[in-house]
Amino acid sequence: MNQSKQRFFIGLVPPPNIQQQMTEIKEYFAEHYNSSGALKSPPHITLQPTFEWAAADVAKLEESLKSFAANRLAIPITMSGFAAFAPRVIYADVVKSPALLELQKDVMSYVGENLGIVNSVSQTRPFVPHMTVAFRDLTQENFQTAWLEFSGRELLFEFTAAALTLLLHDGSRWNISKQFPLRAEPPTILNQS
């Protein structure tokens, strides 16, 4: 029997005010540079790239991510300026903090060991945290022009990533499927005297 599969990825989604501003930048790229591909997902930092999962087993996936997130602390995120994967992708640069690098590594090894989700390509590449504003459908010519405009543009956002987000592809775009809260602070030990 052929089980139907769904496509997911795991990421960090910024708070609504930053999502709104990042979406406006993506809309600018769609309007001025004919690149609307980045609008097919909410603004996010990918931790675990796209994978397929049996539709019938989504509850198992969600339970597993929930228990992982419950044992992890929320982390501070700083976005600073723009960068690019030439000649096609422009993104808001995310500072490679030790906490973010550790969370990404832990997410990938956790889903690999506990759920059998492995992305061989991302295992061979260094993790470059980023929030895409224009990609694949940006022509090389438009990339050059857009990069001249955005390479020196200032951008600074700081937020706390308070949840892991599971995103689901509906056939045409990515949507937030479920969020798993990260702990706000380490458990406190009360000293009874």
Rank of each mutant, 00 (worst) to 15 (best):
P43F: 02
G11N: 09
E102A: 12
L100Y: 12
Q140S: 09
S97D: 03
A86V: 12
Y28E: 04
G152Y: 01
E102F: 01
L61Q: 08
R136T: 05
K66C: 01
Q6C: 09
S64Y: 06
F180D: 10
V95P: 00
V128Q: 14
P14I: 10
S64C: 08
S41A: 11
L148Y: 12
A162M: 06
A59M: 05
L103S: 08
F68M: 14
S177L: 02
T124G: 12
L103A: 06
T78P: 03
V128I: 15
E102Y: 06
W147K: 11
L12E: 04
T188V: 07
P15D: 06
T78Y: 09
I189S: 05
D57S: 11
E24A: 11
T139C: 10
N142A: 11
M22V: 14
Q192N: 01
W174S: 03
L47M: 11
I75A: 02
V118D: 10
V121N: 14
D93H: 15
L100T: 08
P129Q: 07
P76Q: 12
A99V: 07
P76D: 10
F150E: 05
K26L: 00
R72A: 08
F127A: 07
E158Q: 15
Q104Y: 04
V58W: 06
S172L: 14
K96M: 10
I90F: 04
I176M: 08
Q21W: 06
V95S: 10
T46W: 02
G11L: 07
Y110W: 12
T139S: 13
G81A: 10
S109W: 13
E27S: 13
Y91E: 01
P129D: 09
S67E: 14
A55C: 05
N191G: 01
P43W: 05
A86K: 15
Q192M: 00
P14G: 03
I10Y: 06
Q140L: 03
F85E: 11
S4C: 03
V89L: 14
L182K: 04
K178C: 00
P76C: 03
I25Y: 03
E31S: 15
S4Q: 07
A59C: 02
P49N: 07
H130A: 05
L12H: 06
V94T: 09
N2E: 12
I10R: 08
H169F: 08
D106N: 14
T124S: 10
P43L: 02
L39S: 03
K26S: 02
R88M: 10
M79H: 13
R136W: 02
Y33T: 04
T23C: 03
